[in-house]
Amino acid sequence: MARVRNGNSRVGYALAPMAAAALWGGLYVVSKWGFDAVPPVTLAFCRIAVGAATLLVVVRYAAPKRRFSRADVRGFVALGTVVAASIVTQFLGTAMTTASQGSLVTVLTPVFTILLGVSVLGERLSRRLGLGIVLATLGTGIVLYGQHDASTLRSGGVSGVGMLLLASATWAAYTVWGKPLVQRYSALETATYSCAVAVPITGLAVPVELLATEASIGPVTPSVLAAVAYLGVGGTAGAWYFWYKGLEGVDASVVSVFFFTQPVVGAALGATLLGERLGPGFVVGAIVMGAGVVLTSVGQPDRPSSPGARTTAERTETDPSGD
């Protein structure tokens, strides 16, 4: 049975969702490159389509051939539906709200994930984990307060905020409900097949958006193509794999806390690449958030993985069909 044996192993698994959050943090800079020329749902479809194509190429050469049970097929379909809803509602909500309201996704997603992890997966919320979550939330709040205009929290539409809340809840569900499939197969396969399912689902919404809103796609400039490429390859294929990779070794509650690093990375990249100014609140918030992340990822008691969890080599050797 696979086991997280020591703190070093735990830190290794924790670095994967941190990498995912770093890739998502880069989306802030990418948005400055001009991909606002593409309507929200259409952009979501382009992102998922590029991500799925990238993942399918990788999984063809890196994963064993499988024959999935009907239950697992239904699981992949459910995950694909949930993540499609998450991405579409996030893009719509972002387009309908202010930047400060958009930060709700960052703050609330870990909260929803922890609640689902405890209630659905039976994860234990230790004192250390609880303290780490509080510190990470506080630090992120300080960073966001300095990065955005708090006075705009009350502006914008209620529908947009509702979309952001739905995006947070559905991403939490994608994280928690994906864990059994991640343990049965792998992070790569689970991210790939759920992403592939999400492509036609989001594709169905594109003509609805274009017809209902009379939106149009702007000129396809190199910056737009670069933005879509980053969204698909980095922000979807790479980030979704890294996010699920963390679930191979630690609880969903622990993985979720790394979501808090996204605005820190985004602000740092904005200062580095766009010349934006970082105030003292950024430094204080980043330190507090970092302390919370360290508490959640280091020093948690070793635990056996669930009965279905096996290494890739064990799955290939003992169960090449995947059934």
Rank of each mutant, 00 (worst) to 15 (best):
V233W: 04
V105F: 11
L55I: 00
V255C: 12
A268C: 11
A169N: 03
S186F: 03
V59S: 11
A271S: 14
F45D: 03
G178T: 06
L131I: 14
D319M: 10
A16V: 02
A226P: 04
G12M: 13
A286G: 12
T192M: 05
G232C: 06
R70W: 13
T213N: 13
T261C: 11
L56S: 13
L92Y: 05
G203C: 09
L273Q: 04
L116Q: 02
S31C: 01
G235R: 03
W240T: 11
F282Y: 15
R74L: 14
V176M: 09
A21H: 01
P17N: 05
V111S: 08
A52R: 06
G279C: 10
G292Y: 04
R66E: 04
G203V: 07
V134D: 03
A226T: 12
F282T: 07
G160Y: 08
A2T: 13
D149N: 13
A63Q: 15
F282R: 07
T106P: 00
S216Y: 00
P280Y: 02
T89A: 09
T97K: 08
G285E: 06
Q262V: 14
G7I: 09
V11Q: 03
A215M: 05
A191W: 00
A173T: 13
V50F: 06
V182K: 02
T272K: 08
A172T: 09
G93L: 03
T213D: 11
G218I: 06
Y61A: 15
V224K: 08
